[in-house]
Nucleic acid binder design. Sequence first.
RNA 1: GCCGGAGUGGCGGAAUUGGCAGACGCGCCGGAUUCAAAAUCCGGUGAGGGCAACCUCAUGUGGGUUCGAGUCCCACCUCCGGUACCA
Length: 943
Amino acid sequence: MPRYNPSQIEPTWQSYWETNRTFATPDLPSGTKRYVLDMFPYPSGDGLHVGHPEGYTATDIVARFARMRGETVLHPMGFDAFGLPAEEHAIKTGEHPRVQTQRNIDNFTRQLKMLGFSYDWERVISTTDEEYFRWTQWIFLVLYDTWFDSALQKGRPIDELPIPEEVSDQGEDEVAKFRDNHRLAYQADALVNWCPELGTVLANEEVQDGKSERGGYPVKRIPLRQWMLRITDYAERLLEGLDDLDWPVGIKKLQQDWIGRSTGAEVDFYIGAESDYESWKADRKGAGFPSESDDRALRVYTTRPDTLFGATYMVVAPEHPLVESLTTASHRQEVLDYCEKASFKSDRERTDGDRGKTGVFSGSYAVNPVTGNRVPIWIADYVLAGYGTGAIMAVPAHDERDFEFATQFELSVIPVVNPPSDHPKREDILAGQVCFAAQGVAINSGEFDGQSTEEVKIAITEQLTSNGTGCAAVNYKLRDWLFSRQRFWGEPFPILHEVNEEGEYTGVKRAVPVEDLPVKLPELEDFKPHGRPEPPLAKADEDWLYVELDGKRYRRETNTMPQWAGSCWYYLRYIDPSNQQQLIDPAKEKAWMPVDLYVGGAEHAVLHLLYSRFWHKVLFDRGHVTVPEPFNRLVNQGMILGEVEYTGYLDEENNPVTAQEVKRDDEGNRVATDGRIVKPVSMDEADLEKKGETFVLKSDPSIRVDSRAFKMSKSRGNVVNPDDIVQQYGADSLRLYEMFMGPLEATKPWAMTGVGGVRNFLDRVWRMIVDDKADELVLAASVVDEECNESQMRTLHLTIKKVTEDTEAMSFNTAIARMMEFTNFFTREKTRPRSAMKSFVILLSPYAPHIAEELWKLLGGNDSISNQTWPKWEESALVESSVEIPVQINGKVKVKISISPDTPREEMMELALADDRVKALIEGKTIVKQIAVPGRLVNLVVK
RNA sequence: GCCGGAGUGGCGGAAUUGGCAGACGCGCCGGAUUCAAAAUCCGGUGAGGGCAACCUCAUGUGGGUUCGAGUCCCACCUCCGGUACCA
């Protein structure tokens, strides 16, 4: 057995760890704590792909490393197990989603354990566990019980919501309604993304290019009564909170853009009868700008109040509530047709193609509050109902979209910003022929002429405010979170709707009492959606559907929560996974939070990470957690692509076509520039050679071929299965290879030969310590109980230093490279001191834990290697008595000299100048400048 | 279009943040061992030139700063990822 045999030693150590509870985490940390978290997987039927172990290995190394340095580590794993695929499977096969989900979880667990990750498996959770989603529902009730006090910028209990007198005067029902309108979880008729194929509505974030992110099915916009979460109230907090986080700047930027804060002004344009205009103006001047627009005004939001003098028309979205009243009789039919068409258009159709602007005139006019001019009001779908006020003032001279629309419908263009005098198109801009969207100096703006854009913005906003026709305003792109799904396989809402004796809704809602949680999913006969936007839970038995409480009858909410719900707070539950009394024990929460390191894919940059930050902030406001942000440090692992593929092209007669002439036509077919249809063929690297930047055929260097690594996908057939790698090379090799490929954050292609390379390294490590010729497992004869000599000592301590520092910095690839150098060095040594071997095996253990345990035991170590102390390096062992440094002449290395590393500057220069070769090189020249960097180099500038 | 990230040998990638470009691995070439092979061990390997010691050129392209640039500045090219009428 003395050969390295991972398939034997790996399972042995895995069961050792399990039976000895090696990685069980105490309830509370002693000393420094470290919470190292992976984004938990969705347990799909395909099992793990090689992208999963990349991040998981990285965190496992960090966790094992931290433990050996004396920290108490929390490193848990779980499953994000609600979601569509299991339900689709159920619809197809009739098998309950729970059955398939459990099977997949079992398979994932097997695979994760096979890779030797040091998770505390006693803390494993699944979002589908009733004991877990009981608390997901509980948090929903917290959201339901919270309103956002914008003055304090804080979520507060709904009881504390001040009720205006005019509301309380109208009785209890109105008070309840008022409260409902302020809860963070509320119901609204939302224009939702209804996907008939999936039989569900989708969140904006789940729709891409008008198609469902999952499956790519068309999505229609229909109005539906939905649960919404008021995430927009937290926009400012979510934005500010980013500042202190140690996250990749790219991710922060994505979240900032997603939140999309902009500042500007809201402005009311008068739309009432002409005769009343003066009295309206007077009213406004007296009463100020109302929080809601009255029916004599059309309110817009603009980021460029400075261009108000150039507002020559207005546009309202087709869904705007005033469309009907603004439309005059003679335009009615046209407007109705237009709005109807717009409502049936999916987002895809609305944004697809050349996106030429469409719109119709309403027949009405509004009054520009600064010029007093009448401007026409149009209806067009380039204005979005959901952003700002759903209406705009159009300034075609200084907004590209308005300019395009104005050109198309021949509306007037009045430039009000003077471009810089050296602007190439200045004349055209001033003539209204070209749009200028940048800042400049005001013109055609009455008293504001001559001021800069920034100055005018402030001045006009002030004037509007004092006239009661406008005020400064902030807007966000972020929309409230559409939180309900018409699906079976999700968390039921803990909400009851009161029904009267006839079974009709009374409009009264109540929360399921906390002691009755969880609301479990009902047993259903079949899971099929019925093609209507109505949830499958509505098909449940009356026993489930109807509830009597305090003498009243209720029907349960039948929507379910979206998949994001469970993943919004799972990091909290790991800390106290089996607490039946509360979400989390406050003492434990205080001890473990926040997460110190969170690793996962960048695809969750906005959705998951924004949603969980939102929930966390609500829990924080309500006193359930003590830190304002959940994830202190975030690292995104890069994508792992398939093996590099070389693709050549052949025409119909099988003649090769050079790749640079191959393009895609409109249907996506590959064609040569001369129109011949070509087909791609996979090429063998051996038939190719590099020529300049590209690869060409050896047989015909004029023919280029493409070389590229593609995303792994079933259809391309380039998916690498971790099971196969473990079987062929071992888990330690897989772990090591994934870390050795390159920096964690980088996108990198898989190469099977590279796995062989790290396996070869482990074989060498094995032979450095084990006598592979013996019949029994014994130490190699060269492993001796002696002290290290000087060079062995230096190699060992250099390795300790480099591996320690690189592991700390998560530069795993270079740490591994250093361990390879160590192994190369000691393989050449006749004697290998046992103490050095022991230290080395500890360094290796976070990376390749199984082989490290085995060698540790053989070297006479007791206990698990995981319980050993990480070695420290001695600076004194690193210093060399002499170093070789270059002597440069005019910046080019000419000569190398040996000096002591601490030689001072002047002495270095003397030594360099004393060297015969240097003397020869500068013979007859004058030294203009002398540079010496201690321990590094000498540079002489000569003429 | 806009916003990110990246371009270094045949390939994956290293380079104290301005100081010996190419660590380490793959691949390739040579040697030892072997009857032979596998495995292993040892050595070589950016390109071009020279018998040689050596010389010249090299970090996407073109400029610049500097004694010295893969690293800093300016302009451009290519690829990858994200995003798309947000007023």
